[in-house]
Computed example of a mutant assay.
Amino acid sequence: MRTWLDQDHDRLITRSRLYFEHAGNLGELPEGQDRKTVHLPRSNLFDVAGLQAIMATIGDGGDW
């Protein structure tokens, strides 16, 4: 079986696209539930530009 994600100390390789969302936007789990489905916006593509935007927000003192 081919894995869709591989990582080591030097790299992160994906066989597909990755999307992200700020954890604070995901909401909490309802009482008695141990998981939930989250929907990630396709506009939040985890690529070089997306990572740079996250790092810039953190560098400017923003909450990310």
Rank of each mutant, 00 (worst) to 15 (best):
R42H: 06
I54F: 02
T14A: 15
R11T: 12
E31S: 09
M1S: 10
L5H: 02
L5G: 04
Q33E: 14
N44Y: 08
G24H: 06
N25F: 10
L12V: 15
T57L: 14
E31N: 08
A53Y: 01
G61T: 05
L45T: 09
L40D: 08
E28N: 08
Q33G: 06
V38K: 03
R35S: 14
A56H: 02
T57P: 00
T14Q: 04
L45S: 05
D34S: 10
Q33F: 07
R15V: 13
V48K: 03
L45C: 07
E21T: 09
I13Y: 05
D8F: 02
D60E: 12
Q7D: 09
L26M: 06
D47V: 01
L29I: 04
R11L: 12
H9P: 01
V48H: 06
D63G: 04
W64D: 11
Q52I: 14
I54V: 06
P41R: 12
V48G: 07
M55G: 03
D63S: 08
D8N: 13
H9K: 12
D10N: 08
R42N: 13
L29Q: 02
H22P: 03
N44G: 04
L12M: 08
K36R: 05
L45V: 05
G24L: 05
D60R: 05
N44E: 14
G24M: 04
G59P: 01
A23F: 06
R2H: 06
P30V: 15
S43V: 09
D34A: 12
D34G: 05
G24S: 11
P41L: 14
L40N: 02
G27S: 00
G50S: 03
G32N: 06
I54W: 00
N25H: 09
A23S: 09
F20C: 03
R42V: 15
T3V: 11
F46M: 14
T37M: 11
G24K: 01
D60V: 04
H9R: 11
Q33H: 06
R17K: 10
L18S: 08
I54P: 02
P30I: 15
D63R: 05
L26P: 02
R35I: 11
L12W: 07
Q7A: 12
H39S: 15
I58D: 08
L12K: 00
L51H: 04
G61Q: 03
V38F: 01
D63Y: 06
W64T: 13
P30F: 14
L5K: 02
G59K: 03
R42F: 10
Q52P: 00
D47K: 01
A23R: 06
D6I: 15
P41C: 09
L26A: 07
D6S: 09
T37S: 08
H22A: 13
T14I: 14
T14M: 13
V38G: 03
A49L: 05
R2V: 14
A53P: 00
L40K: 01
G27C: 00
T14D: 07
A23V: 15
H22M: 12
F46A: 15
W4K: 10
G61S: 04
S16G: 05
L45A: 10
F46D: 07
R35M: 14
H39M: 11
E21Y: 02
L51R: 02
H39L: 14
D6A: 12
D6N: 10
